[in-house]
């Protein structure tokens, strides 16, 4: 459904951030994009959603295609009209609008304004915590509720695909589970396509169908989620476990060599 073909992203005409990134997200599946801080995950999402333009970034090579259409020259609001919506990291709610107004704002691009109320009701059904606070300013919600709200707000545009950026960041484990359960439900009930960016690889791989691993602006590993979960390198670098399942000492040279091979 979504395909990135060998894209290269440059900021300020000078800083090369992504080099030759290719990935594909299949319709109705959850695709996980894993990697450490600064690996280029968020930049990849911005290249898809068009946000690069407002940050002086540019896709200089390759193409982003969605349902057979080039996206990489479109401004963000047109990308949303095509059916892709990004949920930004850091829970960016409109603090001074109420919960209900935040959701209504999410339906900004929709032409069928009559059915917006029904969509809001469905979001409330999915996140009962939000329903209780529908008339409260979003700035006063808790972190978990804000994360639910931004996901709900993204869904209000009736997207075909959602780009989720670090939904687990800074949340309590229980809340993370709740949110991941919702993501899984969205896939199962609505057949939503999801591209999930996470640092929490264990969790991401439990709900994902397919996974990619990024390092230093390129894809270094790819495979079905189940296979990645078993991959010894992944276990070691992201899950922090060695082959025996015990904590690994960083002094071991083998680790360094293997990592070097990856990055080379």
């Amino acid at each position: 459904m979504l395909a990135l073909n060998n894209i290269e992203v440059v900021y300020d005409n000078a800083i090369l951030v992504l080099r030759g990134v290719s990935l594909a997200a299949k319709a109705g599946q959850i695709t996980a994009l894993l990697g450490a801080n600064g690996a280029g995950k968020t930049t990849t999402l911005k290249a898809i959603s068009g946000l690069l333009h407002s940050e002086r970034g540019e896709v200089t090579k390759g193409s982003v295609e969605f349902a057979g259409e080039r996206l990489d020259r479109l401004p963000p609001h047109q990308v949303v009209e095509r059916g892709i919506v990004q949920v930004f990291e850091g829970r960016r709610v409109f603090a001074n609008l109420t919960v209900a107004e935040n959701l209504t704002a999410g339906a900004h691009t929709r032409r069928d304004r009559g059915t917006v109320k029904d969509s809001i009701d469905r979001i409330f059904e999915m996140f009962p915590a939000l329903a209780e606070r529908h008339n409260q300013a979003a700035g006063y919600l808790s972190g978990g509720e804000q994360q639910m709200l931004v996901i709900g707000r993204a869904l209000m545009s009736n997207p075909k695909m959602v780009l989720l950026d670090e939904p687990s960041l800074g949340l309590a484990p229980q809340l993370i589970e709740e949110i991941f359960a919702v993501i899984r439900r969205l896939k199962e009930e609505r057949h939503l396509t999801v591209l999930l960016v996470e640092q929490n690889a264990t969790l991401a791989l439990t709900i994902a169908d397919h996974g990619y691993v990024m390092e230093n602006g390129r894809i270094v590993l790819e495979g079905p989620a189940a296979a990645l979960q078993q991959n010894s390198d992944i276990k070691e670098f992201y899950l922090g476990l060695n082959e025996a399942g015990a904590r690994k000492s960083y002094r071991e040279v083998k680790h360094y060599r293997r990592r070097k091979r990856w990055l080379g």
Binding site: S54, F94, E101, H108
Partner: peptide, 24 residues
């Protein structure tokens, strides 16, 4: 209205506003 909400969205979070499809 829709326009007013877009204004407030831009003020509160311009990037988030852009990302939900508001032509900033």
């Amino acid at each position: 209205s829709r326009i007013g909400r877009a204004f407030i969205a831009i003020r509160d979070q311009d990037i988030a506003a852009e990302i939900i499809g508001i032509n900033i």
